[in-house]
Write a protein that binds this DNA or RNA. Structure first.
Lengths: 125, 125
DNA sequence: GCGACACTTGAACGATCCTTCATATGTAGA
DNA sequence: TCTACATATGAAGGATCGTTCAAGTGTCGC
């Protein structure tokens, strides 16, 4: 990690200082980055989309619906579980997963809107 | 990537089929994963937060405000530029960056809300 | 108890990502 | 032209991530 003062030439020192103190705390930044990191994998993304559709599903159906191995699905669900994105209900030897809150749906919709806005070719502006 | 039919035992085949066909297209999933991937890095996250606060800033001020090297900031901005998350205005030898649309703010707020909801200890449920 | 089953976990390999250093591009001023 | 400057880019090194295989836990039915 970088020291608090950096050796980069500055144009508007006043603005830099005010922006700097308005930034979220280091802890918040790390938290946000981890949440977004969970959403950055196609497999986990499909899983969340499946839960958005299916409501509550067991691991093997989730694996089948998203085209993953059982082991892969289980690893993915572990990460989502630890970050409280999904919650699990156990019944016998089955484990049924569902989304833990409604933010995921909104995150999805927003990101899709952004993707739609930027579709039709990427590259330098 | 997995074949379309997978060798995982299925409990509710009907539901699996209906969820499977309701999933977003492969292209959409990849797009979404890439957008979220951009947000998954603390440096880029701080950069977007700075632009949210500062409106429009040059690269060196952005680097100073977020505690990155010039080179690091430039690499980060390149990725954000290519995904149309930020846009650049050039004036002489300066480059001024700003957010390209308002979705980033909403994505931030939503993710922060989720983080608040899950704060106070992580782990298996 | 025993085996089959649903799921979980650990370790290893390969791919990807971020950081850094060095260099390149293009602009301003003398 | 030459130097200083703001930014951009390429390549290399190390860290991190996802996938896979193998083995582990706990449950059901015989």
């Amino acid at each position: 990690m970088e020291p608090d003062a950096c050796s980069v030439p500055v144009v508007d020192a006043e603005r830099v200082a005010s922006v700097r103190q308005a930034l979220p705390s280091e802890e918040t930044v790390q938290d946000l980055a981890q949440v977004f990191g969970l959403l950055a994998d196609p497999g986990r993304l499909r899983m969340m989309a499946a839960l958005l559709e299916g409501g509550e599903m067991c691991v093997c159906d989730l694996a089948a619906a998203t085209g993953q191995s059982m082991s892969g699905a289980s690893h993915a669900l572990r990460l989502l579980r630890m970050r409280r994105v999904v919650k699990v209900r156990r019944s016998g030897r089955m484990a049924y997963y569902q989304l833990a809150d409604s933010h995921v749906r909104m995150l999805f919709d927003l990101a899709i809107t952004h993707a739609r806005h930027t579709e039709g070719g990427l590259g330098d502006g």
